[in-house]
Amino acid sequence: MKVLPLHLAASQKKTQSLKTLLDSGANPELCDQLGRNTLHLVIANWPSVSSNWIGPHSKFRSIMAIMQQQAEDCLHVLCEHGVNLNARLQSHRQQSALHLAVAHQAPSAIAILASRGASINATDHFGMTPLHMAAGTLQTEITSCLIQQGADVNRVVRQSGNSALHLAVQAATKKFCKTQDTDLSCVEELLVGGASPNVKNAAGCTPLHEACLGGREEVVDRLLQHGADLNKRTHLGENCLFLFLTQTSNLKSTGLLGKLLGLTSPLSVVDAKGNLPHVLKLPRYTTQKDQLVRLAQQPRDLLGICKVHMHQHYNESSRTFLKDRLPEKLYNFVFQQWDCPLDVELNETHETEEFVPLDFAPPLPY
């Protein structure tokens, strides 16, 4: 298929050529064979270099900075000529320019598009907004940029009902994530930006349910600090402890297991139909099953009741107040000490089946 001069100018970031062609009447809405118009091509060819793999004063970074400025200039030219900022890709995903900006890690493009009137909460064919895409890939800078531009942090994906926080937690609990700091920074950005830690998806799962299922104690702690309710149940009557116990590898996380046992109230290890997690039905976990069932049947002691009460009624800011006034040993006992009463086989390795957010699919290579 013949390449239009306007598309060539957009792809190569030739600002003056782009302006001249538009002034001469070239139509920026015409699409190429992949369904991309002139605006999409500018975004799809956006220069992006991770700060992790080049130095701050390198010649390469300087060159990339010049290229990025050229891309921004092209974007401004298109906006000044009245291009449709909400035009969708003519492909099965039907993404907007903002979706493409997320896929190509272009925060400055997001800021320009949003300031010029692009719909920050536009959805693609699957009902995902740009924020859903950014959160699902733990892009903290992009997530922050979208929130600053007014993205709805509690909007959910059409079919699954997952919020951006659900998707970020699902991604952060996967074993192949980059670093713990990266995982938590994106989750934290959403929470500080107003994301509800207690919103339920179509299955009745909150972000905390997802974190417990993935067995990442750091993510669980961060959600609890922001007011997540540990005792909410899914539509099948599963609490956080139940979901944690459905993954064999989670049994090695004795710290998180002890915390869930200490804070779940009333203590229960069955769903709405009285079923135990399938892992506990395996012969090798008979001992743990018997211990858990016995523990759930016993009344909680007074110290345990007090700890649950303290956690339910004192948020993070209140705990800072208490930490300055309570003896260190008492504070640590109430908020940081969780003993696991089970005999867990720490030396046996059982891989967890990977779970992938159904809403999220990696962006296509444009």
Rank of each mutant, 00 (worst) to 15 (best):
N121H: 11
L138T: 11
R116Y: 02
F176T: 14
S144Q: 15
T123M: 13
N121L: 09
S115W: 00
L167A: 10
K200W: 00
L208C: 09
L165S: 12
M128C: 15
V187R: 01
S144T: 14
Q139I: 05
F126W: 11
N154F: 13
H132Y: 09
I110H: 01
Q139D: 14
K174S: 12
R155P: 00
E141I: 13
A114K: 03
T206C: 02
N201A: 01
S115G: 09
C186F: 10
Q159N: 13
I110F: 09
A118H: 09
T137S: 15
T129P: 07
A151V: 06
P130L: 07
G150M: 08
C186N: 12
G194Y: 06
E141Y: 08
C205D: 13
E189H: 00
S119R: 05
D181W: 00
N121T: 10
S196M: 02
I112S: 11
Q170C: 09
A109E: 07
D181N: 12
A195M: 05
M133G: 04
E189G: 00
H125C: 13
P197M: 05
Q149V: 00
H209L: 03
T123Q: 15
A106F: 07
Q159Y: 12
L184F: 05
S163W: 01
K175H: 08
G204Y: 03
P130I: 09
I112V: 15
T140C: 15
L190R: 01
P107D: 09
L165W: 08
L146N: 10
V169E: 02
V187T: 07
A203N: 11
K175R: 13
V169K: 01
L191R: 04
Q149H: 11
E210G: 00
E141N: 10
A168C: 04
H125N: 13
L213M: 09
A114W: 01
Q149R: 15
M128Q: 15
G150N: 08
T140L: 01
I112R: 10
Q139C: 06
S144V: 04
Q180T: 13
C177A: 12
G117M: 11
N154Q: 11
A134Y: 03
T137H: 12
Q170P: 00
A211S: 10
L167N: 06
A171E: 14
F176Q: 14
G161E: 10
G204Q: 04
A164N: 07
I120N: 01
N121W: 11
S163Y: 02
L208N: 08
G127T: 10
A109V: 07
